[in-house]
């Protein structure tokens, strides 16, 4: 098992290298650079702009820039953000907590409710309750996130049940630990429900379809015929077989843990990764974008690995082997 994990991680290094080359190429091909915002500032002279270009290394050809960056990365230095003048990973870690809090709560929301509703509606196929849950799921799937977020905030502003965006109340500096934890969950509800509601539909439909597929299999019929209680047939046999594709899906979800959700974060003023990334891309803050892209690719690789391990755990037919 350990050997499998190690080998998978080693094989992923060329993937990461490829990602970095591709990302850097795309960033370089996009017109303009970080200094564009200064080029239209009447107070900055041309000679100053040229000096800034030299300082930031932007006067070098992209290939040289890439290898200079790669050389630094191999020495453990992922570079400085042009905008913040700080190491890029300091900026990433600052936002990691908020991003994880939001993605984990929204995943829990989407998956517990999604799987529950999926099973519920599969067992009541084509009945009214099945139709209603499906409609709700599809509404979640079709409302754009930012719109749902705005609706939620209007509700929050009118009823005062939830805060109008943000992660911390203004008096958080004087709060006790438990109060603070409580307030985190109070604040995360809006964005988590917004994100989770969209994810819920996918999980629910997948669960429903898979379970229905399994329920039509011969072994289910056989188990019922030999007098096994329906509950055991469904939960012990059919459900276990139905869950496999969902485990793979879950692996992909894990890869998005640190990615952030730009629109939802923006509307809810949530201090996550998505807002920082979009700002960095707009400002052509190359090294910050590179750091986040590499991190996301790493998460994708890890997510897939975890999904494979989980799959082996839930499905005895699957063995972890590496050719």
């Amino acid at each position: 098992m350990l050997k499998f994990i190690l080998r998978r991680l080693i094989v992923s290094l060329p993937v990461l290298f490829g990602v970095s080359v591709l990302a850097f190429t795309v960033m370089s091909l996009a017109p303009g650079d970080y200094l564009d915002q200064f080029r239209l500032d009447p107070t900055i002279s041309k000679s100053t702009l040229q000096a800034l270009e030299r300082d930031l290394g932007l006067d070098q050809p992209p290939v040289v820039q890439y290898f200079m960056w790669l050389g630094q990365v191999l020495r453990g230095n992922f570079g400085y953000s042009f905008q913040f003048r700080r190491p890029v990973f300091a900026l990433v870690w600052e936002r990691a907590f908020a991003t994880l809090l939001l993605s984990i709560t929204s995943i829990i929301f989407a998956w517990t409710i999604g799987i529950g509703l999926g099973i519920y509606s599969a067992l009541r196929q084509y009945k009214l309750s099945d139709q209603i849950t499906s409609v709700i799921a599809f509404i979640g799937l079709s409302i754009p996130n930012f719109f749902f977020a705005l609706l939620f905030l209007y509700m929050a502003a009118k009823t005062k049940w939830f805060p109008i965006g943000g992660m911390l109340p203004v008096d958080s500096a004087t709060m006790g630990t438990w109060q603070l934890i409580g307030s985190y969950f109070w604040h995360v509800t809006g964005p988590a429900v917004t994100l989770g509601f969209a994810g819920l539909a996918g999980v629910m439909r997948q669960m429903r379809g898979q379970l229905l597929d399994q329920l039509r299999q011969d072994y289910v019929e056989f188990a019922s015929a030999k007098g096994m209680p329906r509950k055991v047939v469904i939960y012990k046999h059919a459900l276990r077989n139905a869950i496999n594709p969902l485990v793979t899906m879950f692996g992909y979800t894990l890869s998005g843990l640190l990615g952030g959700a730009v629109l939802t974060e923006t509307v809810f003023a949530w201090p996550g990764m998505g807002r920082m990334v979009i700002q960095a891309i707009n400002a052509r803050d190359t090294y910050l974008v590179m750091a986040v892209l590499l991190l996301s690719s790493l998460m994708l690789i890890l997510g897939n690995l975890i999904a494979d391990i989980l799959l082996a755990a839930v499905d005895p037919r699957i063995r972890l082997r590496f050719h």
């Binding site: 705005l150 502003a157 109008i164 965006g165 943000g166 003023a269």
Partner: peptide, 16 residues
């Protein structure tokens, strides 16, 4: 300075 990236939400906060 509360970080509110959306103008619409900034207005909601002001109204509230």
């Amino acid at each position: 300075f509360l970080s509110v990236p959306s103008q619409d939400v900034a207005r909601l906060k002001f109204e509230a």
